[in-house]
Each structure stands twice: as structure tokens, then as C-alpha cells.
Simulated scan of single mutants.
Amino acid sequence: MQKTGDLALVKQINTAIVLEAVLKNAPLSRAQISERTGLNKATVSSLVQDLIHSDLVIDIGPGQSSGGRKPFLLLFNSRAGYAIGVDLGVNYIRGVLTDLEGAVIHEYELPLKTHDVDKVQQQLFTCIEKLQATIPESPYGLVGIGIGVPGLVDETGTILFAPNLAWKQVPLQTIVEDRFGVPVIIDNEANAGAQGEQRFGAGRGIANQIYVSVGIGIGTGIILNKELYKGASGFSGELGHLSIEVNGKPCRCGNQGCWELYASEKALLEQAEAIGFTELDTLIEAAKEGNERVLALFHSIGEYLGAGIANIVNVFNPDLVIIGNRMSRAETWLSPAVRDTVARRSLGQHHKRLSIRFAELNDQSAVRGAAYYAISRFFIKIKSGEPYNM
């Protein structure tokens, strides 16, 4: 009996190796998989057939011959299933449906004008249902849902504290799983954004990077040595609550003088009211038209943003800082002040190799990262040899 168990484990491991080779290097022939993995050709052929039967790999026919018979090439079947990613913001809910390689198939967004838990929950369900209704027929259907939220999340997917939503102890993972019957992964929105940019955006291939999510609040996702750093209790990245003014404004977190009170979209809009603006989009339009008061406002916010980033640079010495979320739309007017302030305030050796970029995915970093969480969970289950279910 022990030998049978060992053989099953070996097959499971080898199947995962073959699938990983196809995921990373397709199109590949069976012979090329054998060369890359070190598995013999007969084993590869058998495992590939299993993956084809599982609808995870497709044979796309003969490729170019290098002498002798033409090899039959294999691709990962990215449309075998679909994932939903959701960015639950303070003033919006944004969702995407992606295939199993993270490519966006459909998008849906709606404004969020209430923070009442029950009402937000219904709007969240609406977003997910709209996307779910667009899923094409596929072997695995909806494989999971990932959700990024602006707050502290524990390992059970409970939102412990989201100050800008005024939420405490909301068991969001359980609520959504009960409704949709698929695995749900909940994480802080900035962590999801960091994952989105690392996998699909400006952070690809960069070992040490900090994603700064600038929306109504500010959060950060920290990637060190290509891994998301979550801290001892899983709550790292709340750098929007760095104190930058000793006797500053009171914050909903209970502190005062927090960075996000001076450098966020909310800070921008609070100051913009005095000159007759109430929305980010209208401010951007005014900046395009050369409105000097709006340009000065963006410059001021950019300086505060740069001051906080300089602190991050001095602490973490990253290769890259990525500025994302809704305020990335204002890159043209924020960037000069941010870059100048970081250059002046960060230590010379820390700044020497630093790159500052605005999110390549614009304001979709978190929603793409959330979908990636669901895809990643699917692959973990598939590679473990377990039936894919909750």
C-alpha cells in the first residue's frame, strides 16, 4: 500500500512539473517538455494526455520541424475556467472577469455612495453577478473570486478594521463564499495592487518593489525578493498611517497627522472644494486646460506624496516604487513634484538606483491582483492533485 501511495505522489509532483513547464514556456512539444524537466519522454507523454483529458492543455497541431517529423505543440488552455477579481474601494466597486492567464474578458464598475455594510454587500453581489453572467461555457466555470479591500484582513478573510469604510469585524470571505459557492480570497487592496503590478504591470521581473495605492486613503504593498511581505501578524503595509505631522489632523484610525490625510485623493478633494471642484475627473480636465490653481493643488499633493515615498525609500531601499489606484490618472501633474521631493528627501545611496513609476495597469492594479489570487488558488489545488472544490 505504501508503494502505491508513493507512486501516486510521484505522479502528482510530475504532473505539476509538466503543467508548470507548459504555463511558463508554451508552445512546447512533448520532447521539449522532456528536455526542460528532465522527465523521460514516455512519462511526459502520459502526463500530457492526462492534462489534455482534464481540459488544461490543448494540442494545437504540428509545429516547424528541425529535421524529421514535425512536433505537435501544446498550449495551456487559458479558457478552461475563469476568475473574478474585485476592488472594493471607498467610493467605487470595480470588478473584472479574467481567464486563467489573467487576461481581462469583461469589466464592471459602479459608484459606491454608502458604507452601510448590508448595502455595500448587495452592491458587491451585483458586481459579481454581472460578471458571472458573462462567463462562457467552460470545463471549470468560475474557479474563484478574489477581493481587495481597504483595511486589515485576517487569515479567515474577515475585515478586522477598515477606517475609511468605518467597518470592523466583517466576515466578508464567509459571506461571499456562502452566496456564490466558490473559493474566495480576501486581502488588503494595496497587497492586491502590488501583486497585480508584479504579475501583469510595471513590476514584472523586479525583486524589491513598493506599490503605493493612492485613493481616498493610502496603502502600500511591499514585495521583497519577489515575495509579498505581510509582517508577523499579516498586517504590514499600512504606511498611509505614518505620522508626518506631530500635531496634525485627526485620522479615522485613531492617530493624527497620518500621511494619507495630506497626500490622498481625499486630501486633494478637500482642498479642491475651496476652488469649486468636487471630483477627481473634473480636476484632471481643469489641469489639462491649464487651470493654475488646480495645477498648484496637484503640485502640493505631489510634494506630500513624495515626502512619504522618501520615507519608504529610506526604510526599504527598493528597486522600484509604483504609484497606483485612482490618483495614477493624474500622473502628468503629480509626477514632477513627487520625483523632485523624493530626490531631495531620500538618502543619496538609496535614491541612486531607485525607479519611480506610475502603475502600468492604471487604476486596475488591485482588481487584476485580486483575480490573480483566485487563479493562484485554483492552480495550487490542481497541482496538489485534489478535486477542485471549496
Rank of each mutant, 00 (worst) to 15 (best):
residue 317 N to R: 05
residue 6 D to S: 10
residue 172 L to R: 10
residue 11 K to N: 15
residue 310 A to M: 01
residue 87 D to A: 05
residue 22 V to C: 13
residue 110 L to G: 12
residue 245 E to H: 12
residue 102 G to N: 09
residue 321 V to M: 08
residue 266 K to G: 00
residue 275 I to M: 15
residue 17 I to L: 05
residue 16 A to D: 11
residue 152 L to W: 06
residue 11 K to E: 14
residue 162 A to H: 11
residue 344 R to P: 03
residue 71 P to C: 05
residue 277 F to C: 04
residue 248 G to H: 06
residue 113 K to D: 06
residue 20 E to S: 15
residue 312 I to C: 11
residue 60 I to L: 03
residue 287 A to K: 11
residue 158 T to S: 00
residue 84 I to N: 10
residue 325 N to Q: 15
residue 67 G to A: 09
residue 126 T to I: 08
residue 363 D to I: 08
residue 257 G to C: 02
residue 179 R to E: 09
residue 264 S to F: 07
residue 128 I to L: 09
residue 308 G to F: 13
residue 94 R to K: 14
residue 31 A to L: 03
residue 255 N to T: 13
residue 53 H to V: 14
residue 93 I to R: 10
residue 309 I to Q: 05
residue 253 C to T: 00
residue 12 Q to M: 12
residue 10 V to T: 10
residue 315 V to H: 07
residue 214 V to R: 05
residue 354 L to V: 12
residue 376 S to T: 10
residue 309 I to N: 03
residue 239 L to H: 02
residue 138 S to I: 04
residue 79 R to P: 02
residue 387 P to C: 10
residue 387 P to L: 12
residue 311 N to K: 06
residue 3 K to H: 05
residue 105 I to G: 08
residue 165 L to N: 06
residue 7 L to E: 01
residue 130 K to Q: 02
residue 215 G to M: 08
residue 38 G to W: 08
residue 34 S to F: 01
residue 38 G to K: 07
residue 213 S to Y: 01
residue 47 L to P: 08
residue 353 R to W: 13
residue 137 E to R: 14
residue 159 I to L: 13
residue 364 Q to H: 15
residue 297 L to V: 06
residue 143 V to A: 11
residue 74 L to F: 11
residue 301 I to W: 00
residue 296 A to T: 13
residue 233 S to N: 14
residue 127 C to T: 15
residue 281 D to G: 10
residue 36 R to I: 10
residue 122 Q to L: 01
residue 113 K to W: 03
residue 147 I to R: 11
residue 122 Q to I: 01
residue 227 E to T: 13
residue 169 Q to M: 15
